[in-house]
């Protein structure tokens, strides 16, 4: 029996390939609704058209174009909205009286 070659420990199968390096790639996106500002038509998470043209930055070198949410839950660039409310203090999307719920990024 000991001579039976079939009963011996099977030989390691020949390696097809060796993994020498493995580069991981991750994709991510904001876990928020990425709305488009209905006034300038640029995503609210990016700078508005006006700030893009002026290439505005704050002291830290960050773009300081923030987002503003109304009580009606509609969001716009603060820059775009502050120009509009000067002539009509209503949400341009639902015509409700405009009042700021929060501001930020």
């Amino acid at each position: 029996m000991a001579d039976d070659p079939d009963n011996s420990v099977p030989a390691e199968p020949e390696k097809m390939f060796t993994l020498k390096r493995w580069n991981c790639v991750c994709f991510w996106n904001w876990d928020v609704e990425c709305d488009v500002c209905a006034i300038c038509r640029v995503q609210v998470m990016d700078s508005c058209l006006r700030c893009q043209a002026d290439n505005k930055r704050d002291v830290m070198g960050r773009q300081d174009c923030v987002v503003v949410w109304g009580e009606c839950n509609h969001s716009f660039h603060h820059c775009c909205m502050s120009l509009w409310v000067k002539q009509n203090n209503r949400c341009p999307l639902c015509q409700q009286e405009w009042s700021i719920q929060r501001m930020g990024k």
Binding site: C40, R41, A53
Partner: peptide
């Protein structure tokens, strides 16, 4: 010169 109005019109 490209102004905000002109850029918006390009998008339109």
């Amino acid at each position: 010169m490209s102004t905000p109005a002109r850029r918006r019109l390009m998008r339109d």
